[in-house]
Simulated scan of single mutants.
Amino acid sequence: MSEISISIPSLSENIRIVESFIDNAKERFSLDDDIYGNIMIAVTESVNNAIIHGNDGNKDKNVYLSLNMEENTITFNISDEGQGFDYNSLPDPTAPENIDKPGGRGIFLMKALSDELSFEQEGKTVKLSFYIS
């Protein structure tokens, strides 16, 4: 098992650091383009949520990103220093009353693109797993 981790201040321009982190993982673990694309969208979405919602865009708070590669699964953990949130009471972005609302699509997207999605520490940590063939 190998683990790699970084921490970044909560600034949206730091998303490019996350993109480089994922590019390096693609090279290191020879990820195919489909999985790479899903990882890129889901993980950057999660980090964005951590910066904006978790840490309220406070540059003095960090977002922590790590990846674990174990057998046929690559797992990303994204943590923030915020208060957490109730992930069980999120509105369904596909429900008719929510279609025109801008928020709520991120987690829906993350769930659709990853093979496993879970929240830990009252929602302060998101765990995204992808199965590698």
Rank of each mutant, 00 (worst) to 15 (best):
I35V: 15
F130D: 12
E122R: 14
F130C: 09
P93T: 03
R105C: 01
S5C: 03
D32M: 01
E27V: 11
E27L: 13
D34M: 08
D100F: 11
M110S: 15
M69Y: 14
D34L: 11
I107P: 00
E97Y: 01
I35Q: 06
G82Q: 00
M110F: 07
N98P: 04
I132C: 14
I15N: 04
K61A: 06
M69P: 00
N98K: 01
Y131H: 08
S46I: 05
N98H: 08
A50G: 00
L128V: 09
D80Q: 00
S79W: 02
M110N: 11
L67P: 09
P9N: 10
R105G: 10
K59T: 13
K124P: 12
P93E: 03
G37P: 07
L67A: 01
F76C: 06
G57V: 09
A42L: 01
K127P: 12
L65M: 05
N72K: 10
I51Q: 07
S118V: 11
M69S: 08
N38M: 03
S133G: 14
I41F: 08
S7R: 07
L31C: 02
G103S: 09
L67G: 06
Y64V: 08
F21R: 00
I6K: 06
T75D: 11
D100L: 12
D92R: 05
S79Y: 01
D60M: 10
I22E: 09
D34S: 11
S7H: 02
D32E: 10
E71Y: 04
I41T: 15
G82F: 07
S46E: 05
L113I: 07
G37S: 15
I107S: 04
L109Y: 10
F108T: 02
I15P: 12
S5W: 10
I107D: 04
G84M: 13
K26N: 12
T44P: 12
A42K: 05
K26V: 08
S10L: 07
I52R: 15
V126L: 14
F85C: 02
D23L: 14
S20V: 10
L128P: 03
T75F: 02
E70K: 15
V47G: 01
V18M: 12
A112T: 14
I41A: 08
E81C: 01
K101R: 13
M1T: 11
L90V: 05
Y36H: 07
E116S: 13
L128T: 06
I35C: 08
L113M: 09
L109H: 08
G82A: 02
S118F: 09
A112S: 15
F108W: 15
T94E: 15
P102K: 11
Y64L: 07
S20C: 09
G104E: 01
I132E: 06
L31P: 08
I52T: 14
D115I: 04
L117Y: 12
K61E: 09
E19Y: 10
I6F: 08
D92N: 14
V43L: 02
D34H: 03
V18Q: 07
M110A: 14
N58C: 06
F29T: 02
L117R: 08
G106C: 11
Y36S: 12
S2T: 13
I8V: 15
D56I: 00
I4H: 14
Y87K: 00
V43K: 02
